[in-house]
Write a protein that binds this DNA or RNA. Structure first.
Length: 828
RNA sequence: GCCGGAGUGGCGGAACUGGCAGACGCACGGGACUCAAAAUCCCGCGUUGUUCGCAACGUGUGGGUUCGACCCCCACCUCCGGCACCA
């Protein structure tokens, strides 16, 4: 019978965790107000979609923010750490159709379940600020914003070719149909001409790019993706007169090559094509129809072979006066620039490929490094800069100079001028589905499209819509909803049944957290001014474009509405890595998820938190391993045991550490070095894995030295070590630490315990081990007293027998000495 | 093709500003405790050679700069992410 084992209180994590979770909840431990006496810290995580169950992949996101917020709070910050639910959206409606329930029932049930899961993990949320975007008290402000934007012309209705997902039965924004597939279900997108609601995000395209200069704490890869997405390119426009009347407007980034244009190309969808080809024969018309019918996805990705046809018509190059044929071809896209180009095969790869296929003339006008090019024989286009040739008065200029002179010339002669093209399109926000924010407008026979009165908000989703999955938007079938009166003339009107894209909801939710109960405005201006900007935003990299571009746009738009006076919502963005299992990203659709509940049952929430943070740096993907979790669990048990050995023996007041020596001093040095490491790892670098490693090292050191500690000073050093270990560990494993803190004799909760400062004196070493190199190779390690000068370092090195052997009989060229670290003796 | 990021033991990873490569953990091997097992504790753990003192090699490959390179430069290979017929 081992009596020692019986003396130690067992680590009953389930009981401990539930008890402290209950206490934090009762005390409202993480509720905050706009306390101006302390510096604020707003830490945000991307609000989850209540899909049903969370898996450990989600948990990772919340573990990172939880450690940081608990740490910041202990450092004296007034920390806002809110949570909410991105509760509108398609899966709820699909579930309703499948199971015969209501989307709201499904959503509320999922929220309740997921909330319980999050609480079981002990996350430090300000629960009183919880929001759900499906609450009319939330989405009424979506409607309010919409009315403001409608007034300012930022929201508008237009007929245009839009992306239609035949599986989700709704239109999608450009961003959500990238590559021609639906972002949600991957179905191939169809293009339909429909009248839809748009937000004029293109008004902000330059601001979205230029304001990035202020986003120095955003990862470059995210900025790069957003830059690509906005796709700004500077060039020029020019008109090419058509023989027999009209002009073709083209966009180019290489106006310096205009004298080399040997044909023009229009996109098959270009509005002028039909007119130009009125007289064309049947086979040409058949070809055109085929080009128009080609798979848009394949065309966009360049996987379709270049194909085109001659219209039979000619245009005139406005610079050279040259007569060039007009073609229609599938490689020119209607959605970019003007949908028409001047083709310069000698200096553009695509034009070159097309010209060679159809035997069109290749005419070089740029000389690479003054070498001549032959249009008949060149094997590929020359796309670099060079000296302009064959271009009348522009000959001899560099391509750069020629471009600006020719742009000016075009402007002077009124056939063109400078022009910037963008890839970004306006944000299409209407959706033909029920479970979203109703767009607050009515259609009146007399007044047309009219926004509802602000006093009529919110326009609430009717509870009695039929979810059959057939016959379009369920809202259309609710007579009481559709029937409306015109706010302008009071006559009969039909209510809009389209709802908003759910990305509207998530574009400004982080403002709502500042005053979630505000009733006569989307948020309280003073509260928002106090908390903004968001100091740290943690979430998945998959939102680099969609959510983060929309959010930045929304903030800029709100500034123009006079609601705020800044242009960027997020100071620092931290995209966390994904959790993988069996080499694949963990996800519901892959069926490889691990539920936190099972892990908590076996090891406890504290172990789960520690493991997730220890296994990999937060920004890298981590592989979930069933055996790896044993390490952090054993670590926690080791801490528990060494604490329990001292528990109940009373807290030892700080002794006079100046007399400390031997093991006590060694321990104390380690303690204070650990404070420096853990603080830096959490605060600046967010390298939480190495912070945990440092705490493991400290624990190992306590175990190593514990038995050799003697006397009051040593006891005080041990007491300080245990206290510090628990405080530093508490953001990672808060429940166990709260318990151990009590066991060590403290009365108050750790939640507001001040974070320790390192004592520089304690960290000072008496003597340091210094590496000795001879000609760059390590030959020995010698002990050098702290603060020793170069000569003393050198003397210690030369006294070492191992070093002597490598130096003897040779001439000392020089000695490089890095005090306290390294000595390198260079000999010949 | 273009733009980012990365490549370190059997594995996850560490090395912060050019200064002791492999911290911390997993797995594995050995030992203690035990009737036994689990748990725990201790020791070992890059490769090769070894007279057990050490020695040589070693951070994707090849070169370079430097007293000194995982770190900087040049060329290349591989992997991951993004963009891609954007004129």
């Amino acid at each position: 019978m081992n009596t020692l084992v019986n003396e130690i209180k067992p680590y009953e994590f389930d009981e401990i965790e539930r008890r402290f979770q209950e206490r934090w909840r009762e005390e409202g431990a993480f509720e905050v107000s706009e306390d101006k006496s302390r510096p604020k810290f707003y830490c945000l995580e991307m609000l989850p979609y209540p899909s049903g169950d969370i898996h450990v992949g989600h948990v990772r996101n919340y573990c990172i923010t939880d450690v940081i917020t608990r740490f910041k709070r202990m450092r004296g910050f007034n920390v806002l750490h809110p949570i909410g639910w991105d509760a509108l959206g398609l899966p709820a409606e699909n579930a309703a159709i499948k199971h015969g329930t209501h989307p709201e029932t499904w959503t509320r049930r999922n929220i309740a379940g997921m909330k319980a899961q999050l609480q079981r993990l002990g996350f430090s949320y300000a629960w009183s600020r919880e929001i759900a975007t499906c609450d009319p008290s939330y989405y009424r402000w979506n409607q309010w914003f919409f009315l403001k934007m409608l007034e300012k012309g930022i929201a508008y209705r237009a007929n245009s070719p839009v992306n239609w997902c035949p599986s989700c039965l709704t239109v999608l924004a450009n961003e959500q149909a990238e590559g021609g597939t639906c972002w949600r279900c991957n179905s191939a997108i169809e293009i339909r001409d429909m009248e839809q609601w748009f937000l004029r995000i293109t008004d902000y395209q330059d601001a979205l790019l230029d304001d990035m200069d202020g986003l120095s704490a955003w990862p470059e890869r995210v900025l790069q993706q957003q830059r690509n997405w906005v796709g700004r390119s500077s060039g020029a426009e020019a008109s090419f007169p058509i023989e027999g009347g009209g002009t073709i407007r083209i966009f180019t980034t290489r106006i310096d090559t205009t004298y080399g244009a040997t044909f023009c190309v229009l996109a098959p969808e270009h509005p002028m094509v039909d007119t130009l080809m009125t007289g064309a024969d049947q086979s040409a018309k058949t070809t055109l129809a085929r080009l128009r019918g080609q798979d848009r996805r394949a065309r966009l990705s360049g996987q379709v072979e270049k194909e085109g046809l001659f219209t039979g018509r000619y245009a005139t190059n406005p610079f050279s006066g040259e007569r060039i044929p007009i073609w229609v071809a599938n490689f020119v896209l209607m959605g970019y620039g003007t949908g028409a180009i001047m083709a310069v095969p000698a200096h553009d790869e695509r034009d070159f490929e097309f010209a060679r296929k159809y035997g069109l003339r290749v005419h070089p006008v740029i000389l690479p490094q003054a070498a001549a090019l032959d249009g008949a024989t060149m094997a590929e286009a020359y796309t670099g800069p060079g000296e302009v040739t064959g271009s009348a008065e522009f000959n001899g200029l560099s391509s750069e100079t020629a471009a600006s002179r020719m742009t000016a010339h075009a402007k002077l002669r009124a056939f063109g001028g400078p022009k910037t093209a963008y890839r970004l399109k306006d944000w299409l926000i209407s959706r033909q589905r029920y479970w979203g924010t109703p767009i607050p407008v009515v259609y009146c026979d007399k007044d047309g499209v009219v926004g509802v009165n602000e006093s009529d908000l919110p326009i609430v989703l009717p509870a009695d819509a039929p979810f059959t999955g057939e016959g379009g938007n369920p809202l259309e079938k609710v007579e009481a909803f559709v029937k409306a009166t015109c706010p302008r003339c009071g006559g009969p009107a039909r209510r809009e049944t389209d709802t908003m894209d759910t990305f509207v909801d998530s574009s400004w939710y982080f403002y709502r957290y500042c005053s979630p109960k505000a009733e006569d405005s989307p948020f309280d201006k003073a509260a928002v001014k106090y908390w903004f900007p968001i100091d740290l935003y943690v979430g998945g990299i998959e939102h680099a474009i969609l959510h983060l571009v929309y959010s930045r746009f929304w903030t800029k738009m709100m500034k123009d509405l006079g609601l705020i006076d800044w242009v960027e919502p997020v100071a620092r963005l931290f995209p966390q890595g994904m959790v993988h299992k069996d080499g694949e990203v963990m996800s519901k659709s892959k069926g490889n998820t691990v539920a936190p509940d099972d892990v908590i049952q076996r090891y406890g929430a504290d172990t789960l938190r520690l493991y997730i943070l220890f296994a990999a740096p937060p920004e890298l993907s981590m592989e979930w391993s069933e055996t790896g979790i044993e390490g952090p669990h054993r670590f926690l048990l080791r801490v528990w045991r060494v604490v329990q050995k001292r528990a109940g023996k009373g807290w030892v007041a700080k002794a006079d550490f100046r007399t400390l020596s031997g093991n006590g001093a060694t321990l104390r040095r380690k303690v204070h070095q650990t404070i420096v490491r853990v603080t830096g790892d959490i605060d600046e670098r967010i390298h939480l894995n190495t912070a945990v490693a440092a705490l493991m090292e400290l624990t190992n050191e306590i175990y190593r030295l514990e038995e050799g500690l003697r006397g009051d000073s040593d006891a005080a050093a041990l007491s300080e070590a245990l206290d510090t270990l628990i405080v530093l560990l508490s953001p990672f494993a808060p429940h166990a630490c709260e318990q151990m803190w009590l066991d060590l004799g403290h009365a108050k909760s750790l939640v507001d315990e001040p974070w320790p400062n390192a004592d520089a004196t304690a960290m000072r070493e008496i003597a340091t081990e210094v590496a000795v190199q001879v000609n760059g190779k390590i030959r020995a390690r010698v002990l050098v007293p702290a603060g020793a000068d170069d000569a003393a370092h050198k003397a210690e090195a030369l006294a070492d027998p191992g070093v002597k052997a490598h130096v003897e009989g040779k001439t000392m060229v020089k000695a490089i000495i890095v005090p306290g670290r390294l000595i390198n003796l260079v000999v010949k």
